[in-house]
Design a protein around this nucleic acid. Structure first.
Lengths: 237, 237
DNA sequence: TCGGCATAAACTGCATGCAAATGCCGAATG
DNA sequence: CATTCGGCATTTGCATGCAGTTTATGCCGA
């Protein structure tokens, strides 16, 4: 696999044309992309100097990026001994999915109780519109919609901190959710599960919304943990 | 107020005698201490150069410390515009306490279902022992026990990630929970609330444990938010 | 007197250099 | 032959310097 598309950027791109600002941000994206897309395996060493000259920047922004990634849980930093790609055990991964399910359950409950009329309308409209993506089997687009859907759920809970926790956990799970929609019929199943959540929210049935969201995530989690078993964790050293 | 006890350290202390290793760690502790103990007010500017020469280090470790504190949610970093002590609105603070309540409810539920016999025994024994602290009105000691109690709850859930989320949120709330036990009779109330949680867990009644934990935190949160209203938030600029 | 613009000061972000820490390898010793 | 100690190489951690960006100040015109 030629995953080297980011490597030898023409040096003029240092601060022009590249989407978002600061060099550190770029490094965070570059490194996390490589980890997320499987370009680096858990346990692999991330040496500052190598990364620095691989991306043609100095060690300082690399350091900062590694720190941020460490805060995000994607890499592990050992004092004086460098950083490695975070090793997540199957148990820990399962725990993350479990937590995600619980967090979304809470958000869904809050949504049922607290969403404004406006938010409910938007939620329903967007959800209905997504049915078309399912029919077309537009996986990439659906994945995008899916992301929005969940974000909407976090926002609708009207609890900034809960939203933050959920988003954070979701980001951290991203690497392991990649092939989620590759499973046959997963698109349609996902939509139906969403439907159950949406209907419960619209009916203001908090308990039902909670269970629906929990079940939805539990299914996704199980699928992903199985997936990971064969593909990522097995290669951890 | 002479809160300048940390300022002009003899320079030899750079890497000797100071408890834990790296300069960055010291900076993190120093700055977070000042924020947590009210030495700095929300919104106040944290200028790298000033901090650097206040603590007689270079800007680099200060930068790293600010980044970590930003990840912890204690300071806010604006690109190219420096860092300020995080401003938490009353709404956001309430949201944090609410989330904390939900997280602990989940942990308590899991504890009821998953704790080992050993863990249950320890939980009960420690809890019983704390009754003595209540009788003696040993506030400081009880506060210590209280911290352990909650940590035990997070651990007992047997979900590493949930434990992490709970601990993280708890740390972040620390600044606002300071005077929690100053309220009259709070010690005894706290113990009785703990008792309800413990009994539910020992009875393996997940639902009851969840509600008990949620109620416990909801009370604490309400008290602290009120407290904050008069003391911290009002002085934010 | 007030608003807009240009210049200057201040501060952040990145690069580079140096010192301390860790890990490795070989040699000496029990 | 195994173990431990010391030097060497690599790598992290911190200091400092420079460049770009933001913010403050002052000047000019209306």
């Amino acid at each position: 696999m030629s995953s080297e598309e980011e490597q030898a950027r023409p040096s003029e791109s240092r601060r022009k044309l590249v989407r978002a600002g600061t060099t550190v941000d770029q490094m965070v994206r570059a490194i996390s992309d490589r980890i997320v897309t499987g370009g680096m395996h858990p346990g692999e060493k991330l040496d500052e100097a190598s990364l620095a000259d691989r991306y043609k920047v100095s060690r300082t922004p690399v350091r900062e990026a590694l720190n941020r990634l460490s805060a995000m849980g994607l890499v592990e930093r050992r004092p004086n001994r460098g950083a490695i790609v975070a090793v997540v055990s199957r148990a820990h991964l399962a725990s993350m999915f479990e937590s995600m399910a619980e967090l979304e359950a809470i958000c869904a409950r809050f949504c049922a109780e607290r969403m404004t009329e406006q938010e409910r309308r938007t939620l329903e409209i967007e959800h209905r519109a997504a049915a078309e993506l399912v029919a077309r089997e537009a996986e990439a687009d659906y994945e995008l919609f899916n992301s929005d859907f969940h974000t909407r759920l976090y926002r609708g809970a009207h609890s900034p901190h809960m939203c933050e926790l959920a988003s954070q956990t979701r980001r951290r799970l991203a690497p392991f959710r990649r092939a989620q929609f590759r499973f046959d019929g997963r698109l349609q199943k996902s939509w139906r599960e969403h439907d159950r959540i949406v209907q419960s929210i619209l009916a203001r049935d908090a308990a039902a919304a909670g269970s629906a969201a929990r079940d939805h995530l539990t299914v996704v989690g199980a699928a992903s943990v199985i997936f990971v078993n064969d593909d990522v964790i097995a290669t951890n050293s």
